[in-house]
């Protein structure tokens, strides 16, 4: 598109100002993580007395923060939960979108209705149930409840209904069964949407606070978010520098995932949005 230079300039300026607004709070966060606690409110973006002390005390082996263990717990539960969600939801979405069986519609409406129930209404029942199974304070508690989220099924359902029928029919002519059709056609074609679902589940589980807070009790089973809250939100006041150091640390996995999976994620988000 041809545009006069000044218009280009304005557009560019809008984007630059917008990006700075987006990045600025993060820079503050980063800078505070490198300040001693007493300098946290000194109002300078560049730390006057830069220090690694916050990171050192967060990572110190003797400190009550078992940061590496928490990180491991968060990563493990987020990765296993997203893999499980991707497989379960893909199978279910294929069944609901492309196959026929008794009660299909009812199931679909049930799933959609469940999207509207706020988590707070199910917190206590879920807790009681896991207590009865003896699953509290285990990886089971940190992983299993996330596999029930109906959003993923709904998302993939929308995606699969838009895959052209001809592909499926060609496979049927070749004598492929339902499972093979899923594995050879829907699974590969659905990769952008499934990957997005996986990524969103990963971030959702990794960043979840409420459920891991309630469902785990021992120090060694805590996740990163709960650990961050415990370490830094002391009973009354807050040590901002330590909190920010821990926050920066806790962001590393999602940050890495963001950098490497950016293209895939954005493509997925985009395709999903278009097909929904």
């Amino acid at each position: 598109m041809k545009m006069p230079g000044w218009k280009r300039g304005i557009i560019f300026a809008i984007l630059v100002v917008g990006s700075l607004f987006m990045v600025f709070p993060f820079l503050w966060l980063l800078s505070t993580a490198f300040k001693p606690e007493s300098d946290a409110f000194d109002g300078h973006l560049i730390p006057g007395h830069p220090t690694f002390a916050n990171f050192a005390s967060v990572l110190a082996p003797g400190s009550s923060a078992e940061v590496l263990r928490w990180l491991g717990n968060s990563l493990l539960s987020a990765i296993v939960a997203s893999l499980a969600v991707m497989v379960l939801d893909s199978l279910a979405a294929y069944g609901l979108a492309r196959l026929q069986f008794f009660g299909r519609k009812v199931i679909l409406y049930l799933l959609i209705a469940s999207l509207m129930v706020p988590f707070i209404a199910v917190l206590i029942p879920l807790y009681l149930e896991l207590a009865n199974f003896g699953l509290l304070d285990t990886y089971g508690a940190l992983i299993l409840p996330y596999t029930a989220n109906a959003f993923g099924v709904f998302l993939l359902y929308q995606f699969y209904t838009n895959i052209p029928k001809e592909l499926e029919e060609a496979a049927i002519v070749d004598g492929a069964g339902k499972f093979q059709i899923w594995r050879r056609i829907f699974l590969p074609l659905g990769i952008p949407a499934t990957a997005t679902l996986g990524m969103m589940t990963f971030m959702g589980v990794y960043n979840d606070f409420f459920w891991p807070l309630v469902a785990t009790s021992s120090n060694s089973m805590r996740t990163m978010t709960v650990g961050v809250a415990l370490m830094a939100i002391g009973p009354y006041s807050t040590n901002y520098s330590l909190l920010m150091a821990l926050t920066v640390f806790s962001m590393i996995p999602t940050f890495i995932a963001f950098i490497f999976a950016q293209r895939q994620l954005m493509q997925g988000v985009a395709t999903t949005g278009i097909n929904l």
């Binding site: 009550s64 809250a229 415990l230 939100i233």
Partner: peptide
């Protein structure tokens, strides 16, 4: 021993 955040 288990510590719980004050606000929760």
């Amino acid at each position: 021993f288990r510590a719980i955040p004050y606000s929760n």
